[in-house]
Structures are given as structure tokens and as C-alpha cells.
Amino acid sequence: TETYKYDDKREAEKAAEEFRRRGITVTVEERNGTWVLESK
């Protein structure tokens, strides 16, 4: 599991889209005002 942090929800979702395009499952969730993207 890799974790990436973003200040902006849009950025996180854009990154998530890129991962999914490569066939990687990711989750995006907000933690304490930071958007956390996790690849499984």
C-alpha cells in the first residue's frame, strides 16, 4: 500500500484517475483536512 497526500480534493481525484487508468485500485478519503490517496 502506498499513500499520497494532497491538499486539494481535485488534485487527489485527478491522481486517482491516473492510477485507475493503469489498472491500480486506489481509494481517496479526507483525513484531518488532507486528502489521502491510497493505492492497494
Rank of each mutant, 00 (worst) to 15 (best):
T1S: 12
T1D: 09
T1V: 12
T1K: 11
E2C: 15
E2Q: 14
T3Y: 12
T3A: 09
Y4R: 10
Y4L: 10
Y4M: 10
Y4S: 05
K5Y: 15
Y6W: 05
Y6S: 02
Y6K: 01
Y6D: 00
Y6Q: 01
Y6I: 02
Y6M: 02
Y6E: 00
D7H: 13
D7E: 12
D7W: 12
D7Q: 13
D7G: 11
D8K: 06
D8A: 05
D8T: 15
D8R: 05
D8M: 05
D8F: 05
D8H: 07
K9R: 12
K9F: 10
K9P: 10
K9C: 08
R10K: 11
R10C: 14
R10V: 12
E11S: 12
E11Y: 04
A12N: 00
A12H: 00
E13H: 06
E13M: 13
E13S: 04
E13A: 05
E13L: 12
E13T: 05
E13P: 00
K14V: 08
K14S: 08
K14L: 11
K14T: 08
K14H: 08
A15L: 03
A15S: 04
A15R: 05
A15C: 09
A15V: 08
A15D: 04
A16K: 04
A16F: 04
A16V: 06
E17V: 07
E17R: 08
E18L: 09
E18V: 07
E18P: 02
E18K: 07
F19A: 03
F19S: 02
F19G: 01
R20W: 07
R20S: 06
R20N: 06
R20P: 00
R21I: 08
R22G: 04
R22P: 01
R22H: 07
R22A: 07
R22C: 09
R22N: 06
G23K: 02
G23P: 00
G23I: 00
I24E: 05
I24F: 15
T25P: 10
T25D: 13
T25H: 13
T25A: 13
T25I: 14
T25Q: 13
V26F: 08
V26C: 09
V26R: 01
V26E: 00
T27D: 05
T27I: 11
T27N: 07
T27W: 11
V28Y: 03
V28R: 00
V28G: 00
E29T: 14
E29V: 15
E30V: 07
E30H: 10
E30F: 15
E30A: 07
E30N: 11
R31I: 13
R31C: 09
R31V: 11
N32W: 05
N32E: 09
N32L: 05
N32T: 03
N32G: 08
G33T: 02
G33W: 02
T34Y: 15
T34R: 12
T34L: 14
W35H: 01
W35T: 01
W35V: 01
W35N: 01
W35Y: 07
V36G: 02
V36F: 13
V36P: 00
L37V: 14
L37T: 03
L37Y: 01
E38K: 11
E38T: 15
E38Y: 13
E38Q: 11
E38R: 11
E38C: 13
S39H: 13
K40E: 10
K40L: 13
K40R: 10
K40D: 10
